[in-house]
Design a protein around this nucleic acid. Structure first.
Lengths: 238, 238
DNA sequence: GTACTTGAGTGAACACTGTTTACCAAGGGT
DNA sequence: ACCCTTGGTAAACAGTGTTCACTCAAGTAC
């Protein structure tokens, strides 16, 4: 399996990887404000304008870095879930939520960049390439794939929400499509539950990572665990 | 009630107000990236270095602007609550939550600046001057002050959280102290409930304002209302 | 009234930033 | 041999935060 692409192409892909890697470490070590074109160029021994051969602008580069970050997080959650039986939905949900929190705490700068930046108005094309939503869909998809048909009764979702929850359900099964599997079915009640789960998980983790709880927390883990347990109990897991 | 302070002092306070006001409109009209020292100076007919007579740095200025923003939001919620009977806790809670969301939607840039910026490591001195926590404490304080003694049984809060929830309760009664009122009492269960309420409210509003729901939402209001109703029911309001 | 001190504001400078432009040199295709 | 794409450079432009030396007016002390 030798790499017989023309050397030129390989070099290009290589420096592209180096650019993103350096950008990443710069973000981690100095925060978003240290993520500058000239610093990146300096570190890989190149001049700043050369970067415009790879990205149209700084914000374009940053957007791609966000994509990388989300991919990493998705991978992380993927390996976490891979070690768990596919039909033990409860422990898979717990593991995914804990994994998300753990990753966020270990990578606060990355989390801040992708999770607390207002969506760029241009990138909100339906949904699609928004990396933020993508990672969420990925990991709930991985869980749902192993737990088909766990339906709550559909009337559970209030009437005024039906339209949007249906849209979300569609997005979800779309993300679930994988290979030649049969079309997965996801109930409206499930979709609604998943959405609520996400809202609360996000709130909890964001407040913790940004250190924005309204009082000086000494140990956030029990706080997180209790919220998790409560919510799991609420939907009948555990 | 004439203002007989020396004119010099008055002028200083005046241009200080102008600085903050211009900063504010700049933030609203151009986003955080348009909030620059030189732009502010230009707009009030002054040179940039002069601003250093008022603030130690740009980030110092920004921090004070955050304070102003939070004060405005607190005022907003204050007037909303003022029109409601002090003993109708349910409608006061609903009004405060709706008011918070409405304000956030009407002021997305301000919301983004103060609610989605990682806490400055220096400013996290215990709690105190962190404007973020302050506003929250203010408005839950205003509600709790009218509904004393609504205790859930204290054992409701899991054992491992007691220490932190007690700390939160203390912060809360501290913020409630007002004039010569008798020392207010807040149960642990109440504090815990309030905290959970905040986590979910924050998650919901942040996701909506940043347009980061994992699917294209067409009407976020029912989504918000259903989360609000659900949570209110859960704690026995309504 | 005359010195002295204070303090807001200025102008020039420094070290940065993103971005554009013109240019260059090496490689591959025909 | 020719051309032409491609990755890179140097120089420049406009803008940024920040510092320093300097004014110049107002207030205070004698």
């Amino acid at each position: 399996m030798t790499d017989d692409r023309p050397r030129a192409e390989k070099n290009r892909a290589d420096t592209d990887r180096r650019i993103r890697a350096v950008a990443r470490t710069l973000l981690v070590e100095q925060g978003a404000q240290g993520l500058t074109l000239r610093a990146i160029a300096r570190q890989i021994g190149i001049t700043a304008p050369a970067l415009y051969r790879y990205y149209a602008s700084l914000s374009d580069l940053v957007q791609h870095v966000c994509g990388d970050i989300c991919a990493d997080l998705a991978d992380d959650l993927g390996t976490v879930l891979a070690h768990l039986p596919a039909d033990d939905t409860a422990s898979r949900v717990f593991a995914a939520c804990r994994g998300f929190r753990t990753w966020a705490i270990a990578h606060p700068r990355e989390f801040g960049l992708v999770f607390a930046t207002p969506a760029t108005p241009g990138a909100a094309d339906g949904n699609g390439n928004d990396p933020f939503g993508q990672i969420f869909l990925t990991f709930t998809g991985r869980i749902l794939a192993g737990a088909p048909g766990q339906e709550r009764s559909d009337p559970d979702v209030p009437a005024r929400l039906r339209a949007d929850i249906e849209r979300f359900r569609d997005t979800l099964v779309d993300a679930l499509r994988d290979g030649d599997q049969p079309e997965p079915v996801v109930g409206l009640g499930t979709a609604y539950t998943v959405l609520r789960f996400w809202v609360r998980l996000y709130g909890q983790v964001a407040l913790e990572v940004f250190d924005r709880f309204p009082f000086p927390v000494t140990d956030a883990t029990p706080l997180f665990e209790s919220m998790l347990a409560e919510q799991a109990a609420e939907v009948g897991l555990g």
